[in-house]
C-alpha cells in the first residue's frame, strides 16, 4: 500500500512539474488567442470569461482587411526570409573558410573572436549610428535597410554555429573529393553541405525567429506602412487614446503561426542540429 502510494507520488511529481511549466508557457498564448476571438465587450468582462464566450472573427477582419496588417505580414516575411538567406550564405562560407584554411598569425582564431565580439555589446548602441547611416544612404523606410541590418546581426551567430558543424565533418571526406577531381566549391556543395544539413536547418530556424520577432531596428528604421514589419505594426495599435487589444491579439496570433509551423517542420533537424557533436558516432 505504502509502495503504491510512493509509486503514484514518484510518477505524479514530474507530471505536475510539467503541467506547471506548460501552464506558465501557454497561458499567455491562450489568453491572446481567446481575446482575438472575443467581442470588445467580452474582452473586458469581469470576472473574465475564461472559456465561454461568443466567438467572432471581427478582429481578424479589422486587422487584415480594414487595416494593413496583411502588408506588414508580407514585409516581415520578405525581410526575414531574404536576410536569413543572406546570413546563411555569407556566414556558411565564412565559417567554412575559418575552419578549413590556415590563416597566418593565428588570424583564424582572432577573426572568429572578433566576429563573436560584435554580439557582445547591446544592440541599442548601434541604433542611432545605423539610423544616420541609413538616412544618408536613403534607405530609411525600405525593406533593404532591415535586410542589411538583420543579416549583419545574424552573421556572427551563423558563423559560430556553422563553425562547430564544419569542424565535425572529417577532413578526409573533402580531401577525397578533391583527389576525385572536384573543386573546393564542388566539394563544399556536394559533400560537406549535405552532411551539415541538420546544422543549417537549426541555424536557419534561429535566424528566422530573430528576424521575425525583431522590434528595435524595425521601429527605428521604418515608419511607413509600406516598410513596417509585423511587430512594429502590432505595437502601433497602442495609441494615445485607445489600445486595440482585439486587433493586436488577432495580428499576434497570426504572427505566431509561421514560426510555429516552421519550427515543427524542422523539429527533427533542430534536435539533431543542436545536439550534434555532443555524442560521438
Amino acid at each position: 500500500m505504502r509502495d503504491r502510494r510512493r509509486g503514484i507520488f514518484k510518477r505524479g511529481l514530474p507530471v505536475l512539474a510539467l503541467g506547471v511549466a506548460l501552464l506558465a508557457a501557454l497561458a499567455p498564448v491562450y489568453w491572446m488567442i481567446t481575446i482575438s476571438l472575443k467581442t470588445e465587450v467580452d474582452e473586458f468582462a469581469s470576472p473574465p470569461k475564461w472559456f465561454v464566450f461568443t466567438p467572432t472573427l471581427q478582429h481578424y477582419y479589422d486587422a487584415f482587411v480594414t487595416r494593413s496588417f496583411g502588408q506588414y505580414l508580407l514585409t516581415s516575411a520578405i525581410v526575414a526570409l531574404v536576410s536569413t538567406a543572406c546570413a546563411l550564405v555569407i556566414g556558411t562560407l565564412a565559417a567554412y573558410a575559418l575552419t578549413r584554411f590556415h590563416l597566418p598569425y593565428n588570424l583564424g582564431r582572432k577573426l572568429s573572436l572578433w566576429i563573436l565580439s560584435t554580439r557582445m555589446f547591446p544592440a541599442i548602441v548601434t541604433a542611432v549610428p545605423l539610423f544616420l547611416m541609413m538616412r544618408d544612404l536613403r534607405l530609411l523606410n525600405t525593406k533593404a535597410a532591415l535586410i542589411v541590418v538583420y543579416t549583419a546581426f545574424n552573421l556572427p551567430f551563423v558563423v559560430w554555429m556553422m563553425r562547430g558543424f564544419f569542424a565535425e565533418v572529417p577532413r578526409d571526406l573533402e580531401e577525397a573529393a578533391l583527389v576525385d577531381g572536384d573543386s573546393r566549391l564542388g566539394a563544399l556543395v556536394r559533400v560537406v553541405l549535405p552532411l551539415v544539413t541538420p546544422g543549417l536547418a537549426a541555424t536557419a530556424v534561429f535566424c528566422l525567429i530573430v528576424c521575425w520577432n525583431e522590434f528595435l531596428f524595425a521601429l527605428v528604421l521604418t515608419q511607413t506602412d509600406a516598410a513596417m514589419t509585423l511587430p512594429v505594426g502590432i505595437a502601433g495599435r497602442v495609441t494615445q487614446y485607445e489600445i486595440k487589444w482585439g486587433v493586436m491579439s488577432a495580428a499576434g496570433a497570426v504572427a505566431m503561426m509561421p514560426i510555429l509551423v516552421f519550427a515543427l517542420a524542422m523539429q527533427r533537424y533542430l534536435v539533431r542540429g543542436l545536439s550534434l557533436g555532443a555524442v560521438k558516432g
Partner: peptide, 15 residues
Amino acid sequence: QQRDLAMVFQSYALY
C-alpha cells in the same frame, strides 16, 4: 583536382 591521381584513405573517406 588536376593531378589525376586516386587515393584510398585509411578512414576510407566514403561519402
